[in-house]
């Protein structure tokens, strides 16, 4: 089983540049956790970022170096960093570890989190050699973080016909949700005003364009009017992110839309 549908270059570049809305970043981070191809492409685009930075020098204040040298304390031990990262990730609210806080002035929770960008190798993970596609109930770390647990911890709301969803808390500009589609079931026909990204976590779905299995991402723009249908045999669980509300063609879902925030 391999991933056939990957993130687009513009999405990877925007993620590398740090400009994606949070819901999209969550989907990108989750896919990259499952996909070595996109992980490598992301690292390569970050190299482009490094080259752009190399080309951006502006003179500093005269005493800048002296000020910097005066600030240098004992660097953090590798283990301490890994530990404080884990702390910052699992509990954004109550951070006790000095490690995550010590470096930058006024750091919000978001700050402590995004600071993890530099820490791509904290060495805290264990089963890297193992297959990274999720087993049932086994989700990539970024998603676990947003759900606050694995799939059993998801608070589903019914959308009718056995289809369920759970909105994940992200900032404005785009929304993220988990979708549960029973085996063989269709999601109501819908188009999009903006971009909709759908990442399959478990099972598979098919629409007019192709079949999407675990790890695959469908990138749907305004032009795609589609009816995703879950494969028979297994329910399909997806992470979907949109930067505009969906647009249903049928009347009933359209009336329900404000209620369900889909």
């Amino acid at each position: 089983m391999s991933i056939r549908h990957h993130l687009s270059d513009p999405l990877l570049i925007a993620y590398a540049a740090g400009t994606l809305p949070e819901a999209f970043s969550l989907l990108v981070a989750t896919h990259v956790s499952m996909c070595d191809t996109c992980r490598a492409a992301l690292a390569a685009f970050e190299t482009v970022g490094g080259a752009v930075l190399q080309d951006s020098a502006v003179p500093l204040a005269e005493d800048a170096l002296a000020a910097a040298m005066a600030r240098l304390g004992a660097p953090e031990k590798r283990e301490a960093i890994a530990k404080s990262d884990a702390g910052a990730k699992s509990d954004a609210g109550a951070k006790s570890d000095a490690g995550a806080k010590s470096d930058a002035g006024a750091k919000s929770d978001a700050g402590a989190k995004s600071d993890a960008g530099a820490k791509s190798d904290a060495g805290a993970k264990s089963d890297a050699g193992a297959k990274r596609l999720p087993k049932p109930g086994d989700l990539p770390a970024p998603l676990l973080d947003y759900i606050g647990g694995d799939l059993t911890a998801v608070k589903w709301r019914s959308l009718g016909m056995g289809v369920r969803q759970a909105i994940l808390p992200t900032s404005k500009g785009a929304s993220a949700r988990l979708l549960y589609i029973p085996a063989g079931q269709a999601v109501p026909d819908h188009g999009h005003r903006g971009t909709e990204l759908t990442l399959v976590l478990q099972g598979a779905f098919r629409d007019a364009t192709d079949r999407f299995g675990p790890g695959d991402v469908e990138i749907a723009d305004e032009d795609l009017q589609h009816i995703p249908v879950a494969d028979a045999g297994e329910p399909c669980i997806c992470l979907a992110a949109t930067d505009a509300p969906l647009r249903f063609s049928a009347l009933i879902p359209r009336l329900l839309q404000p209620l369900f925030r889909i």
Binding site: G18, E22, S25, S33, D109, K113, G117, K119, S120, P142
Partner: peptide
Amino acid sequence: ARRPEPEV
């Protein structure tokens, strides 16, 4: 906003 990071 937060910027979730890929699994390490």
